[in-house]
């Protein structure tokens, strides 16, 4: 199977549709192999995958952010209000 192509070709568009499944490890082995063959031959797609992987990594970074002290105070105030509603 030849992978010679121009950037933006049909091969690239097919790969684009599957990249999140690839990153999440949810793609069948045969498709992973096709993607890896394509990436070896297509630097723009390899760079695009890397930037998408890093976007997902930044989302992971954001998910670890804890509540700031003033947000926590707001949260505690809200919970105190709900508790008093529960008692009444």
């Amino acid at each position: 199977m030849s992978h010679a192509h121009q950037p933006g070709s049909e091969h690239c568009r097919e790969l684009l549709a599957r990249l999140s499944d690839y990153i999440d490890g949810e793609l069948a082995a045969e498709f992973c192999e096709q993607i890896e063959l394509h990436l070896a031959d297509c630097p723009p797609c390899a760079a695009f995958l890397s930037s998408l992987e890093r976007t997902v990594a930044w989302l992971g970074d954001l998910s670890e952010e804890s509540l700031s002290n003033d947000l926590r105070e707001d949260l505690e105030r809200c919970l105190a209000g709900i508790r008093s509603q529960q008692r009444n």
Binding site: P7, P43, P44, A47, F48, S50, S51, A57
Partner: peptide, 20 residues
């Protein structure tokens, strides 16, 4: 996906830093 795909190789190559 066409609306979200990079328009050219230059756009595809823009680097985003690794958070780690």
């Amino acid at each position: 996906l066409e609306e979200l795909a990079p328009r050219n190789a230059e756009e595809a190559r823009i680097e985003i830093p690794d958070p780690s």
